[in-house]
Write a protein that binds this DNA or RNA. Structure first.
Length: 486
RNA sequence: GCCGGGGUGGCUGAGAGGCGUAGGCGGCGGGCUGCAGACCCGCAUCACAGGGGUUCGAAUCCCCUCCCCGGCUCCA
């Protein structure tokens, strides 16, 4: 029953034991809101959404913090992303931020990603950052050069423990911004000096400027979760330098180790086998995917692969996920129908008891999968088996009420924990009036069927299908659902 | 150059020494049905890149080879 979590730091699965009994603090690096959110964001945030849901399902109180980066995130050329874009579009930087932040939340809401408990913004924590930077200078971990402040990597011997990047290799390999004032090319900026007419700057002990990217997460994580936190997550590409630098800042500042007990990283998303990159022009916006596919299909697509694996986006896979969602939703419709039509108080038959036993078993292996480093991919396979068992049960001519209710609890519970819809879709687009009307039409059609007037019956079915209402004749009963709203 | 992750049946994609030939899709056959759909059951020369090795036993561990993808630079 213990949860196991793969830690990027130790590179093995560890038994999950939060620092405070029964309470989990989790920080996930949020987006820099200067552009539309893409499928990679969806991947990461849906994965962590499922993780948070699972921890709660297992009885933990979870406090989830995910930042909004609205300053300090620089491009390769050393330009602040938000500022650069705002200047090009001739808008106030914070208006740009506001726009994309709202769109981000909208996308996440549609995808059923529950909002974090706190969504702190970097610009709202400049004072905290300045305080931490001051302290780092006092402790000798940072130094000022002409209005810039750098972290002195040589003072932090653990540097590289997360990414396993060796300092020598860094110097040899990558392009590093060699600011003239840096003592060592590996040192990174905590505070950057801003020119006179720079639109986004704050006053500090070192003059006007703005914070570096890495310091915001360290500061906000500590502010809301304490000096040591249980889980810190993000996508794989943040390990170096972002998370490496966060560790250096936090542990240097507090003198306490470790800053983070479990580092969790999601695998990256590729598109048709290639990495997703602006330069390749293959960015897939969440918005565009949702134009074609249901949110549930997107979630199922993402959760069908383990969160640490690389995930390749291809449209056919979404088509398949959509079909799978339909399978699950069909089953829910049948369950609803069985509840009102065929629930009985007769003692359970041996067949019913067999199915119930099977459901209990599947429920428990589902849970084991999730406990094992949140293996949603394996859990999904059991979800489909639960679905099949439910179908078998509701196919029976009469079903023991208690068993039916147990089946419903199990099935819906698993759907919910994965953030999938647990009610048949027709509820969302119909109304009492629509339902009553369709029931009348169905009655008329069934009268025709009794008369063996199949031409009329088929015509009614065809015309209903053409407006998105799908009929299904079951023994003694016709059920319907809305496939695509007109 | 330095670090990772992979190569599994027609496709997709879990599993990481025996404990379910995962699951889904597609295909075929059967059941149910007026038909259709949905659903249920069964089947597929029962697959794990190639070559060695360890083991009573390997898709899973070790070694070698080939191929793919990613990180090291802004990125979720």
């Amino acid at each position: 029953m213990a949860i196991k979590v793969y830690s990027s730091l130790s590179r093995v699965k560890e038994v999950f034991e939060p620092i405070h009994d029964g309470w989990v603090g989790i920080y996930v690096c949020g987006p820099t809101v200067y552009d539309w959110t893409h499928l990679g964001h969806a991947r990461t945030y849906i994965a962590f959404d499922a993780i948070v849901r699972w921890l709660e399902y297992r009885g933990y109180r979870v406090f989830y913090v995910q930042n909004i980066t609205d300053v300090g995130h620089l491009t390769e050329a050393g330009e602040d992303k938000v500022v650069g874009r705002a200047i090009r579009e001739k808008v106030e930087p914070m208006a740009l931020v506001e726009f994309y932040m709202r769109e981000y939340f909208r996308d996440m809401d549609v995808l059923g990603v529950r909002r974090p408990d706190v969504s702190p913004r970097a610009t709202g924590h400049i004072i905290d950052m300045i305080e931490v930077i001051k302290r780092l200078i006092e402790k000798g971990y940072a130094y000022e050069v002409d209005g810039n402040v750098f972290f002195d990597v040589s003072r932090f011997p653990d540097y590289g423990k997360l990414s396993r990047v060796k300092l020598e290799d860094m110097i040899a390999g990558a392009r590093i911004d060699v600011h003239p004032g840096k003592r060592d090319p590996r040192d990174f900026a905590l505070w950057k000096k801003a020119g006179e007419d720079y639109p986004l700057k704050w006053v500090s002990p070192w003059g006007y400027g703005f914070p570096g990217w890495h310091i915001e997460c360290t500061v906000m994580a500590m502010r809301y979760l304490g000096e040591q936190i249980d889980i810190h997550g993000g996508a794989l590409d943040l390990i170096f330098p972002h998370h490496e630098n966060e560790i250096a800042q936090a542990e240097a500042f507090t003198g306490r180790k470790p800053f983070v007990k479990y580092w969790m990283h999601t695998g990256l998303l590729t598109v048709n086998g290639e990495k997703m990159a602006k330069s390749l022009g293959n960015y897939v916006r969440i918005r565009d995917v949702l134009d074609k596919f249901s949110p549930a299909a997107v979630r199922l697509f993402i959760l069908s692969t383990h969160y640490r694996s690389q995930l390749d986006y291809r449209e056919e896979k979404l088509v398949e996920a959509e079909a799978n969602v339909k399978r699950l939703m069909n089953s829910l419709t049948r369950l609803e129908e069985a509840k009102v039509e065929r629930a009985s108080d007769k003692p359970a038959s041996s067949e019913e008891r067999r199915i119930l036993e099977e459901l209990y078993r599947l429920s428990s292996v589902f849970d084991e999968s999730m406990d094992d480093d949140f293996n949603t991919a394996e859990a999904v396979s059991f979800l489909f088996e639960i679905c099949r068992a439910v179908n078998k049960l509701v196919d029976l001519p009469s079903i023991n009420r208690a068993i039916l209710s147990e089946a419903e609890t199990i099935f819906k519970g698993k759907l919910r924990v994965l953030g999938l819809p647990d009610t048949p879709s027709r509820r969302e687009v119909s109304s009492k009036l629509v339902e009553a009307l369709i029931d009348i039409i169905i009655d008329v059609r069934n009268e025709a069927r009794k008369r063996k007037d199949y031409a009329t019956a088929d015509e009614i079915r065809r015309r209903l299908a053409s407006i998105g209402v799908k009929l299904e004749d079951l023994p003694g009963k016709t059920i319907w659902r809305i496939e695509e709203a007109i």
